[in-house]
Design a protein around this nucleic acid. Structure first.
Lengths: 168, 168
DNA sequence: CCATATAGGATGTTATTGCAACTATTATTT
DNA sequence: AAATAATAGTTGCAATAACATCCTATATGG
């Protein structure tokens, strides 16, 4: 896939704006974050899939692997809430990670509804490699952005997410 | 789907940070935009799907409808490049819009490989409604963000997208 | 104690998306 | 002019993700 032009259908013939080509009037009021969020999401999926292919981990599974490694054991329900992902999506991602041998399920003996999730040995071993791969993608995509700007962007993204998920 | 907790697996037990709960040291270095981009993307898809359901337009089609309305006629190839979307995805989205009666295909007589895309009458009529629906989602999600901050966020998102798509 | 409600997961289906491979048309090369 | 390249689009397949629904286990109300 050749990526040539802009992401905004509001900009007509314009090219993807880089920092230095932003005009002085700022971003047009008609522009929306949605288009950029969407394009960034899709292309990050592509980049991460390529990075993690050697470990047979897809772009739909790595977040769960990382979350489990952060605080195991954890239940699927807790994962879903933490990552704001539907519980059925979580169930299927965990199944794949289990099939690949990275995650182990164990029924909580105090409440048989719960399945506690642990990393296997293979899981423990692969986590650092996944972290490195994710860091590579992150560093590539934030080139030319200062720490302060990056922090600001994250703060704003958090507000957007909050507005999307916490309202009425 | 109940959305309760945080989006970051780096934050442990923390809750989704709102502007006012950001600590003074700023965002931890380990946090990444990826998780927020992903969550925002998925929840925007949900919100937009709900808004556009009455018109039988899915979250995968509205961008194409808007882009066609912006500058018709246009080819699928041009749409794909403009929106940074794979051409096969474009083909399928256009098929749906055609089935719903919003878009019309016409072979370019000067080069039979091209199919020029136009809005139908129904398409012309639905576009303003789609714009309103998108504006509702946009306005909801940018509550509490000033114009200047929003502009800054878009500028930074553009850099991220540029880094993802224009590098080697 | 039993009926109902609630909670955690699993399964089936559908929509979005990208890749590989293909067809058809135009452009280029020899 | 014939063979080969390149271009626009389509089709088949697989992965991600959500919704509806169901199952099982625990909690709660009568």
């Amino acid at each position: 896939m050749k990526l040539v032009a802009i992401a905004s259908y509001f900009e007509g013939e314009g090219k993807l704006s880089h920092r230095w080509s932003n005009n002085d009037e700022g971003v047009p009021a008609s522009e929306s974050h949605g288009q950029y969020i969407s394009a960034i999401y899709r292309h990050m999926q592509i980049a991460i899939s390529a990075e993690l292919a050697p470990y047979r981990i897809g772009s739909g599974q790595y977040i769960f692997l990382m979350a489990i490694s952060f605080g195991q054991p954890i239940t699927q329900k807790a994962l879903s809430e933490k990552l704001l992902i539907d519980k059925t999506t979580t169930a299927k991602a965990i199944s794949k990670l289990e099939t690949e041998g990275y995650v182990r399920r164990e029924v909580d003996s105090s409440d048989n509804r719960y399945q506690l999730l642990f990393l296997t040995e293979a899981g423990q071993e692969v986590v650092p490699k996944v972290q490195e791969a994710l860091a590579r993608v992150k560093n590539k995509t934030r080139r030319g952005i200062t720490d302060a700007e990056y922090d600001q962007m994250l703060s704003l993204l958090k507000i957007v997410l909050y507005n999307l998920t916490e309202q009425e």
